[in-house]
Each structure stands twice: as structure tokens, then as C-alpha cells.
Amino acid sequence: MSEFLFLRNEVAPAMIRGVWMSIKLIVPSAVFGLVIGIITGTLRVYGHAVLKSVANIYVTLFRGFPLLVQLYLWYFGLARFGIYFSPYTAAVIGFSLCSGAYHSEYIRGALLSIKEGQMLGAQSLGFSKTQALFSIILPQAVRRALPGCGNELIYLIKYSSLAYMVTCIELTGEAKILASLYFKYMELFLIAGAIYLFLVSIATWILNHVEGWLAVPGFEPPRT
């Protein structure tokens, strides 16, 4: 009976708080990350020289630094210069920029895989380069990049657990606190792990639907 009370009174509220915080971290980071990735990936292929190198440097840095180091820099590092982010803000900034760098790679690769003829075809009809980019090239590149970007979103769900290292208490953080309080590491981390698995399954389901919805003959999602 005490096990049930423990679950109901301690574990459940903590896990619900934790999942909610995790979702509040993941969803905006996923959206910002994708937007940043599409913009910087496009700049790296079609941008003017200066913007191109800025975008390249961004990707090199944010793929090169370990994510945890990046989070420490945003949260603790910048504080030294009088820039204080809340733990939540620091985590969202860190996740978005890191995720964006990976998306950028997938978008860049996809853009490079689109044949030059697509641009020529559009230009020959009177499209400007920018118009062609938005209505012809990017819609194709995004479809090509989808499997890679989808994977990155799945990773994001899992590395969002690093937020608790900058004191943003999400799912892993809640589990850790309870576990050390009651010395039930195995039970609590198994529960937390199962919840992550559940989140990943939902994300996978959504991604499959998006892929199906964007599928066009010649751009089918790879069958797995």
C-alpha cells in the first residue's frame, strides 16, 4: 500500500511536472532549430559570401562544441558578463542553436542534391532566383532532408534531458531528485526512460504522418 501511495503522491506529480517541462523545452527548440537550420542551410548554399561564411562558422562551432559545454556557456559563462538567462531560457537557446546546426547540414546536403536544371527551368519562366528558391528548390530540398531532420528531432527529445545540468528541472531532473531522496534509482530512471520512449514514439508517429503528407511520387519517404 505504501508503494501505491508513494507512486500516487510523490512519483506521479513529479513525473507530470517533469514531462510538462520537457515538452516546454522540446517543442520550441524543435521549431526554432528547424527554422534556424533551414535559414542557415540555405545561406550556406545560396547566400552571399559574407553570410555564407557566418553560417559556416555557426555550424562548425555548434556541431563542434559538446552540447553540455554550450549549455554551461549560455547559463554560467554569460553570467560573468552580466548576461543572465533563466535556466529554461538558457536551455531553449542551447538546444535550438545546437539542433539548428545539425538541421543545417541536412538542408545543405539536400539543396546540393537538387539538380541545376530545376533553377534553370524556373528562371526560364521568369522566376527570380529568390522566387525559384522558395517555390521550387526549398520544397524539394525539405522533402529530401526530412529523414535526417526527423532523426535530429528524435535526438533532441533525448538530449533535452541535459537541461537539468543547468538547473532546469525537467523529466530527468525530477527523476534524479526523487531517486536520490528515496534511493530508488532503478525504479525512477526506468519510469523516466519509459516516458522518453513514449515521447519518441509520438514524435515518430507524427514524423511518419508528415512524411506521408508531403510525399510525392519521386520523393517518397524511404521505406524502413
Binding site: 536544371g117 530545376q118 534553370l120 527551368g121 524556373a122 528562371q123 526560364s124 519562366l125 521568369g126 522566376f127 527570380s128 521550387i136 520544397p139 524539394q140 522533402r143 510525392v216 519521386g218 520523393f219
Partner: peptide
């Protein structure tokens, strides 16, 4: 230039149709 290109239709050897449309 863009107005001119509309006036001069171009047909390519390998079609260059927009593959996603």
C-alpha cells in the same frame, strides 16, 4: 529581364520539369 524571359520560352533537352509538382 524577368518580363523578357516570359516572352522567350525555353525547352530543355532533359525537360527540367519541377519534380515535386
Amino acid at each position: 529581364l524577368y518580363a523578357y524571359r516570359q516572352k522567350v520560352g525555353m525547352i530543355f533537352q532533359d525537360f527540367n520539369l519541377f519534380d515535386h509538382l
